[in-house]
Design a protein around this nucleic acid. Structure first.
Ligand code: MN
Ligand code: MN
Ligand code: ZN
Ligand code: ZN
Lengths: 138, 138
DNA sequence: TATATCCATGCAATGGAAGTGCATTAATCG
DNA sequence: CGATTAATGCACTTCCATTGCATGGATATA
């Protein structure tokens, strides 16, 4: 993956070793990760750096936050050309209560949700909990 | 409301002054409340008691938890005959980013959500964020 | 009524996670 | 290279959720 550096540059942030490492770490995973996950993967780096790196990624729409209801926020890479837009980008998240995995179901966009008169919807969080495909195979 | 005591009894928990007070506090509100909200309303009582009271209520399906993404869990009374069941009881929650209120939209049940093959859905959390009717009147 | 039992309450302490201020180091640009 | 700006590291804080243990009150049973 030599394209990572150019990708980060395209997001107008400085390309540092740490950022490349964290980006690659995220792209290797097919599940959302917590800050602790990243922390465990990079013992030498300081928590704050990891924290601020992921926040920067969030600002620049490189990753998106996921609140799956476990109490710890998780993060996952955005799709290409994502702008975290309600209509086009926001998707369903699945949290497996057995293995704890939280997965982006990017194909499952958020359905149109009706809200009562007077209310204006700007953002939707849709999390389905249950058991994932891997856990159901056992 | 003199029926509160009988109601609590019907849930097979001991009827205490504190529990009646908290139940009434919740039923007076039309928005979900945090533990801190309850704490502020009952200065004399210990935080732990309030915490455990609400947990008991939760166990007995008297209240349900709401994770609106603000980081603090909120609670609201269940509807009569609620069993927090996915099909019949789970409903949409609205969080107003302006006034901070989180509201049960009990009329808005969770729509059928499709999940990929192999996944089994057991629970759904659906939170819409935006501005509420009151805030939109200003 | 006495007493044993169960549970609600209060107090103290813990742990996890998110976030911030400030000093230092590294990257960028002229 | 020197100056500027941003990234990193360290220390510290705050907030919320949760638990262990001691105590007091309610309930049940003899
Ligand atoms: Mn996602
Ligand atoms: Mn509700
Ligand atoms: Zn699983
Ligand atoms: Zn509002």
């Amino acid at each position: 993956m030599q394209g990572v550096e150019t990708f980060l540059e395209s997001k107008s942030i400085r390309v540092t070793a740490m950022r490349i490492l964290i980006y690659n770490f995220l792209s290797d995973k097919d599940v959302a990760v917590t800050l602790s996950d990243i922390e465990n993967a990079f013992d030498k780096a300081d928590r704050t750096t990891l924290y601020r790196t992921i926040k920067t990624f969030e600002d620049k729409e490189i990753v998106h936050q996921i609140d799956d209801g476990t109490g710890v926020t998780k993060y996952a890479l955005c799709e290409p050309n994502c702008h975290c837009d309600l209509e086009t980008d926001l998707h369903l998240h699945f949290h497996c209560t057995e293995c704890g995995a939280t997965i982006c179901l990017t194909d499952h966009k958020i359905p149109k949700i009706k809200v009562p008169k007077g209310f204006v919807a700007e953002h939707v969080n849709l999390v389905v909990k249950g058991t994932c495909d891997k856990c159901n195979c056992d």
